[in-house]
Every structure is written in structure tokens, then in C-alpha cells.
Amino acid sequence: MLIYTRFHGRGGQGVKTASRILGNAAHFEGYYTQDFPIYGAERRGAPVVAFTRISDESLPVPERGYIFNPNLIILADESLLNDPIVNPLAGLQRNGTLFINTGKPVDKIFTGRDDVRIVGEDLIGLSLKYVGKTILSTGLGAVAAKLTGLIRWVSLEEGVKEELLEIGIRGEMLEKNILLAKACFERIYPASLPMPKLAEPKKIVKINWMPPNLTIPEIRNVGNTRVRKTGNWRIFKPILNLEKCTKCGICIIYCPEGVITMTSSGPEIDYENCKGCLICFNECPVKAFNYIREVEAA
């Protein structure tokens, strides 16, 4: 029995914590487990991957390192689905399970995979309901625990407690998170997962010396980050009411992304790149901005 879980999300969404909640819960259930994240620099919004391996005595966690052939994928952010660099479904086993955190019905989401089971749930909505904030880690961990089909509620509860206490969440906040975990746990049904393929031992790659003029990266196409659409980072979308606006320009100066420009009719937001920080909303002196949740905006 082997469960190879890969979590994909963005920095700040708590996939590392989720992988640890799953690891803890499996541990309390009496399994061998291993959990760890990878990320470059830890910034909110940047893609993050975390892993949890679970096994029993028959094959005590046989591998280390990245999971290339998961049988369970937990996707914290639907917008990563079509990101060619992240490629979150890579290696997902036939008949494996894919969980997507989404406000939409899963059959409305194109994944390009009809050989896997797809489960969806609006974890942001549940988190707002139970915790009053958009916390994803607990929900993701709980959903993953249920999808393994191995973990009972008591072990998950203990796993959530242990992890959240460790990162300093206690008291009422902890209670709310446990309620959230329970709600997520009860809404999901597990299915049996296929055995993951173990990786072949890798060959060692030899890298030859190259002259520096070939290896120093140089970018000549300046200002080209615009093509990297950061609009999909948004949880909330700012909406400008031009009738109230006095064209003072304050939102333009404070927008960290520089996505607001002044046109003859007033400021205009480029939603392709707006990250939804809502500084414009907060700083506009005449409160000309409003915001809505991104799923509702779609």
C-alpha cells in the first residue's frame, strides 16, 4: 500500500501546512509517512509544491525526493491547472484522484484527463463560512486525508491540532479550523487509489565546462513580465465606480503592480495583471472602488 500525494498551490495558500496535516494524520493512524515542500523563494502567489508519502509495514516509505508519479493530487488553486510551467497533472496515475479547490462544478473544468477521478469543493467558501478568513491549509489537509481512504476523523483531528499548534494557532482560531476540517472531511468520499510506479534509479549526468559568454543569461526584451499574467492570483477583484472617481491619481501611484492607467474617462485597471491586493480600494479617498470574489466575477 502506497499513497503518493502531491499538493500544488501558491505561496501563502498553505500547501506545505496541508502536506504536514496529512502526514501527521497518517502518522497518528499508524502509518509510515514522509512530508516536505519545495519552493524557491517563499513569496505569496508563487507556485509551491509539497508532497506526502504514506505507506504501511509491507513497504515502509521506499523513496525520497520529488513525487513524479502521484496517485493523488491536491490542487489548491484552479488557476494553476493551465499553467504550462507548473503542469500540475504531470505523472498522475491512471485511475488516480485529482482534487480541485473550485467554486465551479468539476464537470465544467477542462483538465484534459478522462482516466482519473476528479473531485471538487469550494474550500474558500467553506473557510469563509467556518473560519471567517480564506485559510486553505486545513481544508486541503482534511480533504487529502479523506481521499486516501485510510484516515479516521480522530487521527485527522489530532493531526490538525498538532500542526496548527506548532505554527502558533490556538484558542478559538484552532477550534474554528477543526470545525472546518470536519466539514471538509464529511463532504468528501474516498475511492481506492492505484499503486504508484516507483522511479527508475537515475543515471548521473555529466556537465561539461562552458565559456561564460554562453552561460551568462542576458535579457534584451525589457519589460516583458507583462506577458506573465498575474491576474489569476486574485481572490478578490477590484471594481471601479467611475461616477464617484475624482481622477486624483492616488490609486495609480499606490498600485504595486502599476496596472492602473489614467485614460480620458478616468483610471482603468488592467485585470490581466492586477493581483487583487485591494490597495486601490483601501486608499481611494472617495471610496470609488468596490470588490467582489473572483469566482463570482467569472
Binding site: 513580465t225 507583462r226 504595486p256 502599476g258 492586477c274 491586493c277
Partner: peptide
Amino acid sequence: VEPGTPLCAG
């Protein structure tokens, strides 16, 4: 400074 940077929102 063009948009699309990988820095945190806000």
C-alpha cells in the same frame, strides 16, 4: 516597471 512581477500581492 511593468506588471507581471513575481513579488507578493501588496
